[in-house]
């Protein structure tokens, strides 16, 4: 299956651009690669093994991209993906959710994550994977995705942009049911380096909402528990010792755990179709206690703006914006 098989894409008209029209939509630029041409699709037989990929990624540490950086020009795709309910249940438990027929939007990220990592650990990827920092995530759920549905997942890289601390690159993901795109995700990674002069001004500062919605006590083994259910075995999350090797004093929580925990806290209020934008700020050291803050809502509404901060509010770990689509 290639993009050409999918008429929905071609018809267009519902590309997820921001309300102001300037936003990089989660999947607005999905069908084409960096050079504006359709991406090659490489169909995988099975989900890539993450532990093996992380081991391989360690070997990419020596990569020193030159001035001519090119992103991979292919999209990795995995078809006929069903759900392992036991794993989904474990994921729901670790991220504070309740197992249901509707898949958490962040779970679809977990399902596409092996494809992302496979791209990043691959020969054609220009940056050392383990040094990359997940700075932002955006996902759009077009409708509830059900546990019984068979998915086609894909991932590709795009949007290489200058940043004041280096460059950013987007790892995009997509889940389809038949030809219908049901979920799109974008993980933005920072590749530290010399900031480009042409780096755009820092985006708007996100307001930290006042209202404290919940206090979460994060245990010291949270990184290991989330690694087990997500497959993200990045050593910075697993133990103080392995984190120290990468310059962190203690293990840090997975950003996508915090993201998932926020969305789980919004259940059952999240609408069937929504977009959520998340910015990862300071890492959450484990163990610790953090606070979820949100703008106040009516009885059934969803806070438009959310943040996860330290208990005293002094450190911001994550900011998030949710809206209907």
């Amino acid at each position: 299956m290639t993009d050409d098989d999918n008429p929905d894409r071609r018809v267009g008209g519902n590309a997820p651009t921001g309300a102001d029209g300037t936003d990089r939509g989660v999947g607005a630029d999905a069908p084409t690669g960096p050079d504006g041409h359709d991406l090659d699709v490489r169909l995988l037989d099975s989900a890539p093994n993450l532990s093996g990929l992380f081991a391989r990624a360690a070997a990419t540490g020596a990569r020193r991209p030159g001035s001519e950086v090119r992103l991979p020009t292919h999209r990795l795709m995995l078809a006929d993906v069903g759900q392992d309910v036991r794993r989904l249940a474990d994921y729901s438990e670790v991220t504070g959710g309740v197992l249901s027929d509707r898949l958490p939007a962040t779970w679809l990220h977990v399902l596409t994550f092996p494809l992302q990592v496979s791209l990043m650990a691959g020969r054609e990827f220009p940056f050392p994977m383990l040094g990359m920092v997940h700075v932002a995530n955006a996902m759009t759920q077009r409708r509830p995705v059900l546990v019984g549905e068979t998915l086609t997942l894909s991932s590709w890289a795009d949007n290489l942009l200058p940043h004041r601390r280096g460059r950013t690159v987007d790892l995009l993901g997509e889940a389809r049911v038949g030809g219908e795109v049901v979920w799109e995700g974008r993980s933005t990674y920072l590749v530290r380096g010399q900031g480009g002069d042409e780096a755009p001004a820092r985006g708007e500062e996100h307001v930290i909402p006042e209202v404290e919605l919940a206090t979460w006590r994060l245990p010291g083994n949270l990184g290991r528990r989330y690694a087990k259910v997500s497959g993200d075995v990045n050593p910075i999350h697993l133990s103080a010792l392995s984190a120290k090797a990468f310059g962190f004093p203690r293990a840090i929580a997975h950003g996508m755990w915090t993201h998932a925990r926020v969305l789980a806290a919004l259940q059952p209020r999240l609408p069937g179709a929504f977009r959520v934008d998340v910015q990862f700020a300071k890492p959450v050291m484990l163990p610790s206690t953090v606070v979820l803050r949100g703008t106040s809502t009516g009885l059934t509404g969803v806070p438009e703006a959310l943040a996860v901060t330290s208990r005293d509010g002094g450190r911001t770990h994550l900011t998030a914006q949710v809206r209907d689509v």
């Binding site: 989904l88 729901s92 309740v98």
Partner: peptide, 14 residues
């Protein structure tokens, strides 16, 4: 096998 009482009761309610 992996569903808690809360998950099942919530599903029945919904």
């Amino acid at each position: 096998a992996s569903a808690s009482n809360q998950a099942m009761l919530t599903a029945a309610l919904d």
